[in-house]
Design a protein around this nucleic acid. Structure first.
Lengths: 164, 164
DNA sequence: CGACATACTCTCTTCAAGCAAGTGAGGTGA
DNA sequence: TCACCTCACTTGCTTGAAGAGAGTATGTCG
């Protein structure tokens, strides 16, 4: 990932990971895609990123193998869409870890509320990010919802699409 | 964290977390501190960051409450040192998640090897990042070692110091 | 006193972010 | 058919941070 220094050859996995993940937009884009918002304008409008930066990040994410670009038909025309690959879907535990950390250690703004990670496969809230704290199974995007009380919404995530 | 846009008032915890963690240096600095490398020059030399950037990041991390700056005497003089706070030590699951993701989804460079997370409290390797996959206990820095075969070293982490 | 170490700060150049505007391919309405 | 729209970008401009290197303030040692 040649945004700044190239750390892809580092021996320490933390550093290799940060080569890709050490950018504030990457995880936000992946979060949107895992929420099923797969089109350029959907992602742009939901996270407030500029066109230029989103365009570059999407290209990088496809190069790095976290997203794949697909065309699909809707509204009588062809749209570009970005869907998670296995590597992209596997970012879920990282997002969960960030979320759990932030809930514990950043100030909750006015109007905020606890976001619960719901493991739909067993029906319970998980308090850990990689394996469900209730049933012990790995948390896969397609089995997880994020309960966001400030939006009065429980949003089901989407994983790697079955057909490509 | 006013490096770029300020996301500290965002309702979504992922975004609030990325306000602090969405920078490649932050996690690397915290990793060094959790390895007991607490002085300016130790951190600088082990991660290869410029003086100016390290200085700014350390100030930010103290402001954000992830590090605390302490003076200690060694070599007959007073040194500045940075030690993790509770919020800093709680980054360990995030680091583990990044590391596990990177081991699975980035190319292992020549000379690299699997880095095992050892839960010294039970003596086993954990394959998950927040609770030990072997015994189920939360992974706290003071109970964890990272086994780095490429350095032929098993490095014990350090948590929040008992005295401040 | 001068040499040295530590923990920074300052200066300079390069490059990305953020904002705004433009572009081109495809589709739509009159 | 031709102006107009939407989508998914690209281009240009300005500001500001990164990275590299040199300088500086404080304290210690001989």
């Amino acid at each position: 990932m040649p945004l700044r220094s190239d750390w892809s050859e580092e021996l320490c996995p933390v550093r290799r990971g940060l080569d890709v993940l050490g950018d504030p937009w990457i995880m936000l884009i992946m979060r949107e895609v895992l929420h099923g918002r797969s089109r350029f304008e959907q992602i742009r409008d939901s996270i407030g990123i500029s066109d230029a930066v989103l365009s570059r990040r999407l290209r990088l994410l496809v190069e790095e193998g976290l997203l794949s670009k697909v065309d699909y038909r809707a509204d009588r025309r062809t749209h570009a869409a970005y869907v998670a690959t296995e590597a992209g879907a596997d970012l879920l535990p990282v997002m969960h870890a960030v979320s759990i950390w932030a809930e514990k250690h950043t100030a909750m703004p006015a109007g905020g509320a606890h976001m619960a990670i719901i493991h739909e496969a067993c029906g319970n809230e998980s308090t850990t990010g990689d394996a469900c704290s209730a049933c012990g199974e790995d948390l896969r995007p397609e089995d997880v919802s994020w309960d966001k009380p400030w939006k009065s919404a429980r949003e089901r995530l989407v994983g790697v699409p079955a057909v490509r």
